[in-house]
């Protein structure tokens, strides 16, 4: 059957989101999770981190009261302001304090394996 119009946010960890990733391209719809490291009230740009990896998130369309060091999850599209300036323009976001990040990372890997397995089974 035909696919729905709205793109889903593919599950990626910030550490996976490098130039080698298939998701690292203009307009890619992603779901990212990380700890709030910095937030600029004037530009509504948040910087989240997960381990050593960081990502800028444009939150101008969201109504969230940000708290430093809290964990947030965003779904949005990746934009390249310049080759070195990557920002996720968030469509939706929420506070996920209490999330088990270790389990989250393991579950993403399991989901990716499961989906690859499903595709392999459906191949003629």
């Amino acid at each position: 059957m035909a696919a729905p119009i709205i793109s889903f946010g593919a599950l990626v960890t910030l550490e996976e989101l490098t130039s080698a990733s298939q998701h690292f391209k203009e307009g890619a719809s992603l779901r990212v999770t990380g700890k709030l490291q910095d937030y600029n009230v004037e530009t509504a740009i948040a910087i989240i981190n997960d381990g050593a990896a960081t990502l800028k998130v444009d939150t101008q369309h969201l109504k969230i009261n940000f708290r430093m060091s809290s964990i947030y999850q965003f779904i949005g599209e990746l934009h390249f302001d310049s080759p070195d300036e990557v920002v996720l323009k968030a469509r939706v976001g929420r506070n996920v304090d209490g999330i088990d990040l270790n389990l989250y990372h393991q579950s993403i890997k399991l989901l990716q394996e499961f989906q690859s397995d499903q595709i392999r089974k459906q191949a003629p």
Partner: peptide
């Protein structure tokens, strides 16, 4: 409405 579960969107 649509639900996004990280593997797709369900209308």
């Amino acid at each position: 409405f649509t639900i996004d579960d990280g593997t797709g969107c369900i209308p």
